[in-house]
């Protein structure tokens, strides 16, 4: 027996060393796969929410907000969810690469595969309405979330720029109604000259978005009243176009 073999056996004896049980290694591998798959699924949820936020967002109103289209895009991108997605992609990558044979795959392929699967699953989840549900849930339950994301509500919470959104809480008469915005402020909306687009009818509890003028003192002159829901979204007329329409009418 070689000297090293003797020393090794002696250490095994004196230190009472035993092979670690097989379940220990199996568990480690299962945990790596489990966390990897879980982060991949969460990544898909993040993708679903990103798609929802991108499709639900008001990209056309940048002129109301005195921004260029690029400025509006840069402000509106869902950075929070993009960071979450990046973090989850890294987690998926790390876990997959540390599974038993994960090292055999090129890093860029693992990253690309993870992103593609997240995108495909995310699309399915988006179609199933998960993105909207999660965004609404977090928006209603987690005040911090609203500070982290720039939402459609933020866009329509700009009365000084002629954009107001909220719930109709009372119909005063045929020409006026009360509206509660997303900051829980009450507004008196003058809708006599307004165009109720896409079949929207004045109704208590209805969620609407309105373009018009802020008259101060929580009074708002409505020009267009539009349905809020994303599937009914319409292209808002740019200001220049509106002023032309207005002057022609006058």
């Amino acid at each position: 027996m070689s000297d090293l073999a003797l020393k090794t056996l002696s250490r095994l004896e004196t230190e009472h060393l035993k092979p670690r049980p097989r379940w220990h290694f199996l568990l480690k591998n299962y945990v790596l796969w489990g966390v990897g798959i879980f982060s991949l699924l969460l990544g898909s949820v993040a993708v679903a929410t990103i798609i929802f936020m991108l499709t639900d967002h008001e990209w056309e109103v940048y002129e109301y907000l005195d921004r260029t289209w690029w400025q509006h895009v840069l402000i509106s991108l869902p950075y929070f969810w993009l960071i979450v997605l990046a973090g989850l992609t890294v987690l998926t990558f790390y876990n997959f690469k540390h599974t038993r044979y994960g090292y055999r795959y090129m890093s860029y392929l693992v990253t690309l595969g993870s992103i593609i699967i997240s995108l495909l699953l995310g699309l399915v989840l988006y179609w199933r309405g998960l993105g909207a549900t999660l965004d609404n849930l977090l928006s209603n339950q987690l005040p911090l979330y609203n500070k982290l994301v720039y939402t459609k509500q933020d866009v329509w919470q700009n009365p000084e720029h002629g954009l107001l959104g909220g719930y109709i809480i009372e119909l005063i008469d045929g020409n006026n109604f009360l509206l509660r915005d997303f900051a829980n402020n009450w507004w008196q909306v003058y809708s006599r000259d307004a165009e109720w687009s896409y079949g929207v009818k004045p109704k208590v509890g209805l969620l609407v978005k309105i373009t018009g003028d802020n008259w101060g003192g929580r009074r708002f002159y409505a020009e267009d009243i539009l349905p809020w829901k994303s599937y009914q979204r319409v292209k808002v007329k740019p200001l220049k176009q509106k002023s032309v329409v207005k002057s022609t009418t006058k």
Binding site: L4, T8, R11, L17, P19, R20, P21, H24
Partner: peptide, 19 residues
């Protein structure tokens, strides 16, 4: 010599992980 001895100890401890 020290490194290789440590290698054999670790190998023994992880024998159940050998695929």
């Amino acid at each position: 010599e020290d490194i290789v001895q440590e290698v054999f100890i670790k190998t023994y401890l992880n024998l159940n992980d050998f695929d």
